[in-house]
Amino acid sequence: MRASPAPALLEVEHLTMRFGGLVAINDLCFTARRGEITALIGPNGAGKTTVFNCITGFYKPTEGRIAVAHGDARLWSELDALTLCGDRKLTRPDGALFLLERMPDHLVTRQAKVARTFQNIRLFSGMTVLENLLVAQHAPLMVASGFTLLGVLGFPSYARAERAAVDKARHWLALTGLIERADEPAGALPYGAQRRLEIARAMCTDPVLLCLDEPAAGLNPRESAALNDLILTIRDAHNTSVLLIEHDMSVVMEISDHVVVLDYGVKIADGSPAAVRNDQKVIAAYLGVADDEVEAAEAEVGL
């Protein structure tokens, strides 16, 4: 833990998501700070993936505000003014402020620089590993190809941009140990390699915040340890903060700087890994309580 808290990168306020009568997330507030790994944990069905879908624009939240700030931390003071003026972003030379709940999904990645992976891996299985990483660099390559026109005519600017894109892909392939398999179809990789490739692909969009949805699911202990190192490298060497959904406590407790616990769409704990581990509500949510203690436990958690 750091002595003074880092400035906030992502601010989720009063987030509520209802599907018909079902309240999947209820009045959730939390903050992910710059340069930190924030873990979002909770029992199955707690609404963790729904939070991710709201942050990355796949769902439009019923209520609430989700804001991301790049650059100067003083931009946060403009947040209320931006919300009132009805715009979805504020850009200044020293940074930018985005209201994610107002942005369509592809702009969340392209402009607000929030990238994500999926719980059930979503790779382009018929394309090679390298192609997967080039698709992730679509937006800058599109500009370099003159929105296809210059590229079709064979201008050299596109060839240069593509070489740079391949170099970036090579960097991530080396980091994830996939460089030897770069020309193989993504669908032919073993499971653990597919997980790493999905992270590498998300990182190729140059995110400031990387949202990982259960990256350790289905990995063996050795692979999960390698994953820990990869996530720490992303945090420390690439200036990218991480928001993590995970069930594997060896990952969560070892690498997170900050843990948020959800249960039935409500935040029940928020703090350092050590504090959360000893929290009575968290223990009750995960392990349940004996029958004769239900009432006492319910009173304690405020139900």
């Binding site: 796949f58 592809h106 382009f124 018929g126 192609e131 679509h138 390559l141 296809t148 590229g151």
Partner: peptide, 24 residues
């Protein structure tokens, strides 16, 4: 070109395309 790769990516997985900043 990126547009051609985006077409093929769209054929493979539209949701993943959107998560990578491609305007489907």
């Amino acid at each position: 070109l990126p547009i051609g790769r985006a077409w093929e990516a769209l054929r493979e997985d539209e949701i993943a395309c959107r998560s990578l900043g491609i305007d489907t």
